[in-house]
Structure formats: C-alpha cells, structure tokens
Design a protein around this nucleic acid. Structure first.
Lengths: 230, 230
DNA sequence: CGCGAGCTTGACGTTGTTCAACTAGAGTGG
DNA sequence: CCACTCTAGTTGAACAACGTCAAGCTCGCG
C-alpha cells in the first residue's frame, strides 16, 4: 500500500511471468521460435534504433537498459535474470528497439521471435493481461527512477543505488560489485569524480565499508534516510 | 525511423484508441459501467495512493499527471483530450493510483469501472493488444521526458516545452497558455525565477514573442536546435 | 619493467536555486 | 472611488551544488 517512489528505484525485477499462462501447444510454439545466445560482459544485447525482430528474455546475468545519446547515455534500469527486455518494441508497426541493452556480466539470453510473441498476445487474452502487468510494473519502476534522478541530490542518489543493489540484486548487505566507478556514475547520472567523493563520504562516516569493489552496508537506516530526503 | 528522444517529450497524445476493438455488446457493457464527471480548473482528477476504482478517459480538457512528493512534485506528462489516465493502476491486485492528476482547465472525463476494463482485457485479446500499444506509447513518451529532464539544461528544457505545446497541444505557433509561470516551472522541473529568466532570454533574442500568457514561436529552427543540444 | 585503465584528490568554474525586494493587476470591502 | 490585500510576475545578488580539469596514484598485464 505504498504510494511513494523514493526508494529502490533502479532495478527492475518482475514478479510476473507471463509464460505461465500459455497452453501446452503455445509453449511448444514458443520453443520452436526462439534461440539461445550468450553475451560476454560489455557486449551489446540490443541496439537502439535497429530492427527488433525478437523479444529478449534474460535467463542468466545482469544487463543495463539505456537510451543512447551523446555526450552521455541515460540508464533506464538494470535488469537481473528472469526479466524481459524489448517489450516496448512491440509498440506500433515499426518494431524498432527503443533502447539499447548491454551485459554487465556474462549473460545468457533467449530471443523470442517478435511475431510469435505478438500472436500469443492476440490469441491468449490471459497472456496479454500478464504482459500488461509486466509493462505496468516496469512503468512504476521507471517513475521511481525518474523521480530519483530529477529530484534527489548526489548523496541521495548514491544511497539509493547502494540500497537497490543490496536489496534487489545481491540480496545481501555485502557484495562484490561488477561495475566500475564510471558505470556507477552513468547509473546515477553524475560524474565519476562525484561518485567517488560521495562513496568516500559514506565510507568515512561509517555508513558503508568499502575496499575497491567490495561493499558492505553498515548503517542501513541512515542510508535509507539519506535516500529519502534526497 | 527516428531513434532519438530529444524532442516533444512532455505531451502524451495517443494515436491508438483501444475501444475500436470492442464488440457491440462490449461497448454496451462499457456504457453501463461508466459515469461522466466535470472537473473545474485546478481540481484533482485522481489522487496518488487512493483506491483506483476506475480508469479515467479524458474526453475534453487538459490535465497534468504527476507524482506527489514534497517539497516538489514531478510532472510525468500532460494529457490532452482523448487519452486514458490511470492505466498503470490495473497493475497487480492493488488497484492504487500510482500518480495524481489535476485539471489545467475545466475538463470533462468519463470514469470506467476498473473491473469492467479488466474483464475486457481478459475477454478480448485484440482489445488487450491495443491497450499494450497505448502503454508502450506512453513508455516512449516517458523515456523522452526522462531524458529531457535529466540531461538537458534550462534553455533546452524550456525550448522543448514551448515546441511541445505548439506542436502537440495547440497545434499552432501562437497560443494563449493557461498555465502560470509557476506551473511552467513545475513542468520543466526548475525554479519559477529560472523559467522567467529563460523566457526573457528567448524573447530578447527574438526566438519568441511573449506578452503575458500569449506566446508566439518566431524562430522554430533555432528553438529546435536549442532543444537538441540541451 | 613499462604501459594503460581505472581510481582518487584538489582547485576552479558553471549552472541553477534561493532569498529578498519590488511591481502590476485583480478582487474586496468600506 | 479608494485603500487594502493577495497573487503572479520580475529582477538582482548571494550562495550551493556539481561538473570539469589537471595531476598523480595503483594495479594488473604484456
């Protein structure tokens, strides 16, 4: 019953699986029209502006979804395993990827032929209903992140990301982050130097313990508070 | 085939009408389960966090859709007549409004009972497919605005809004704006004073002609350029 | 051993907000 | 018809928040 968006805004992790609603026959239909692909860390999974011939299911790994624009990109979300990427591409006849996605770590994806996916939506209303739920979930997450990046200051944003990573990605208070400081900066929409300074502040104040890429949340409540007030 | 998001980002104006896909019987079903309501300028059409018992169709008027948060709100989009508000509320079992909406001008809306709407989605896959398109269109628009507010500077944002209003709302280069400077500031996520200063700059440089609330776009190309480079 | 990428730090400049003061027009009540 | 008040609009000056730049550091790897 939470009606605010101040927290855990960056990671999109769907609670819905649309595929559960498929009939046996439809499942086979999907099986026949998908391929499995491996992406190495750093590789582009889909490219903004190119033809979207498929919907992407991230079976294993971690990816960022972002809008490309010089001089700097805008990361829309990070997507852990179990999520769909490219759903907005089924919008209108064009089938163009509206964003790019890249692998943060080695990842395994399944590419589902887009017309297969569209056909399922038109054939199976329960499946479509699930898809709508996934899209809406995604919208909620984007709204949260939108708010975060536009209305919070640096410390709030970094606190937010740290909590987000701990809660939603690693699901523990101590984790080894596979991102560079530069990638963290892109994620929080700030300069690399500022990321470093804020992390140092948190470290000096005992809110986190940080050595290189190992992070440990020491004062969860305080970080939450910083995240809230911006 | 445009793959960037630099322009006309604030107004959501759907090209899709989902209702065309309904059968006669379903149309009657909707008729029986909707009510018409008038809202005066400034009134709240829906309230973030409250129960969403209905989907809102804006038949006539102009509204802002926004996240509530002190000290300041975040406007997600402005919605002209002919659009649906509250679709993300059908996400999961909760049926809570994820955002608030308020009328910029006197507006006429139709409230469609939410379970009616849900039932239509589950019954009619073509209808659901249309709804998905509407949601995706909305997502595209939000991405554009997200980019605009996070990566553009003041002049770029104001140029953006002006073009947006001219192109999408008033559909002419000369219009009378029913918004205060303060509302413009909220819309561009900047301070009222900054809005005034930027508008003055544009006016002094001959890009626009402005007297009070009357605006005239004088140099469309230059404004576009400013909007692009941020 | 040396090279390059990522990381870190301090100094400095820019952008945009905040604050305070002032102005103009639109009610409102005597 | 005139104060009075209230809101919206405007302006300038001070200030804070961040980004940029330049330099140096560290560590893994060829």
């Amino acid at each position: 019953m939470n009606s605010n968006y101040t927290n855990t805004c960056t990671v999109y992790d769907s609670r819905f699986s649309c595929f559960e609603e498929l009939t046996e026959e439809q499942v086979k239909f999907v099986e026949r029209n998908k391929v499995k692909v491996l992406f190495k860390k750093g590789e582009t999974i889909c490219k903004q502006g190119s033809f979207a011939s498929h919907i992407i299911y991230l079976r294993e790994g971690l990816a960022k979804v972002y809008l490309e624009h010089s001089p700097r990109n805008l990361v829309l979300k990070i997507s852990p395993s179990g999520n769909l990427i490219g759903l907005p591409s089924i919008y209108d006849g064009n089938n163009i990827f509206l964003y790019s996605a890249a692998a943060y770590v080695d990842s395994e994806v399944e590419l589902i032929e887009i017309n297969t996916f569209k056909q399922l939506i038109r054939e199976n209303a329960k499946f479509a209903y699930r898809v709508i739920n996934v899209l809406n979930e995604n919208t909620v997450q984007i709204y949260g992140r939108f708010f975060c990046l536009t209305n919070k200051q640096l410390h709030g944003r970094v606190a937010d990301i740290l909590l987000c990573l701990a809660n939603r990605i690693f699901k523990t208070n101590e984790f080894n982050l596979p991102l560079t400081r530069n990638e963290l900066a892109e994620l929080t929409n700030m300069s690399t130097e500022s990321v470093i300074r804020v992390l140092k502040d948190f470290n000096d104040d005992g809110l986190i313990e940080m050595t290189g890429k190992t992070f440990k949340i020491k004062n969860y409540d305080m970080l939450s508070k910083i995240s809230e007030v911006g």
